[in-house]
Design a protein around this nucleic acid. Structure first.
Lengths: 170, 170
DNA sequence: CAAATTATGTCAACGTGACTGACATATTCG
DNA sequence: CGAATATGTCAGTCACGTTGACATAATTTG
């Protein structure tokens, strides 16, 4: 793997040894996460390119189906993108009948987002291959081990910022 | 959480119930993967924007450090992007002294890629916060549980395509 | 050796999905 | 009423991926 006859590759500034185990850094895990996520997203990507949608549409359809009636603001907060970025994608999904907007019953400024039957079908179609992949990766595991996997993924996520108390400034 | 007084949101085609447990699909895991990966990449992203680089540079620096002397073709295969897409990113990294290109000792058409000292430092700086995050998520786990987590991630990855035997056509 | 193949680089055009900044509208709140 | 809020929209920009076409040098093959 590493060049046996490295000629004189160390001339000047050029490093020849593979980076591994420095400072106890787990490079293997870093790569596993990269490859796992890349392949995890490739399944729905293949379906989406049929419909002319992209990954952004996927995320919107997913979360609207998971929490029907959520507001645009809540969706923006979940996705951590700007409203301008959401706008195009959401408009396309509304225009093509995957998502419906309903004025908020209490606050009529809000546009609460609901899936249509078509939108629900799409969400399911996108989730199916991802779930199959997950099920395959978990298939040989006990309930305890599955719990560990969930705990690991949960531990990778940034804690939700605690609500700022009133006396703290912005 | 779900709208208690859903007005008459079910008019027409609009669905009101949260999507969960349909067909045994594990939506929770799907979301955990999304959030975990998003936050996992946010750490190096913050460092990179200081240098004016992006995620694409990160990946190149990472793999060149992990396997010094790899060829451009091998890197393209690892990243699964086109050479035109790699070109810009690689050129910037070479021009700014993070990566060195050395003509292959056997095959002089090849440009073998090596990290410079500067490139190694960048790779380490980017890996450090990711490794810290991983270590935190694994910290409460036994060696057995950690093995399960690695097995899960490995199981999520597409198997490498087996080399086509000579009598199979393209 | 000449021709084909391979490894790499480059030019041009394009698409998606993100960003910032500015401004418009409707609605609610104080 | 005036301020704040929820949302929408216009305009410009950027990162990073794509396809297609072509160029160059080096190796392999007939």
């Amino acid at each position: 793997m590493s060049p046996m006859s490295a000629t004189r590759a160390n001339r000047g500034d050029v490093l020849d040894e593979a980076l591994a185990n420095s400072e106890g850094i787990d490079f293997e895990m870093i790569e596993l996460l990269f490859f796992a996520y890349r392949d995890f997203t490739s399944d729905p990507d293949a379906i989406l390119e049929t419909s002319g949608f992209g990954r952004a549409h996927h995320r919107v359809v997913h979360f609207v189906n998971r929490e029907p009636g959520l507001t645009v603001a809540a969706l923006l907060d979940t996705l951590k993108i700007t409203k301008q970025s959401l706008a195009r994608v959401l408009k396309q999904l509304v225009d093509s009948g995957y998502i419906a907007q309903v004025a908020g019953p209490e606050d009529r400024r809000q546009r609460r987002l609901y899936p249509t039957a078509k939108g629900r079908e799409l969400a399911l179609a996108l989730a199916r291959p991802q779930s199959r992949r997950i099920a395959g990766a978990l298939s040989a595991m006990t309930a305890r081990e599955r719990t560990s996997v969930k705990a690991f993924l949960t531990g990778m996520i940034n804690p939700a910022p605690s609500l700022r108390s009133a006396d703290e400034p912005d």
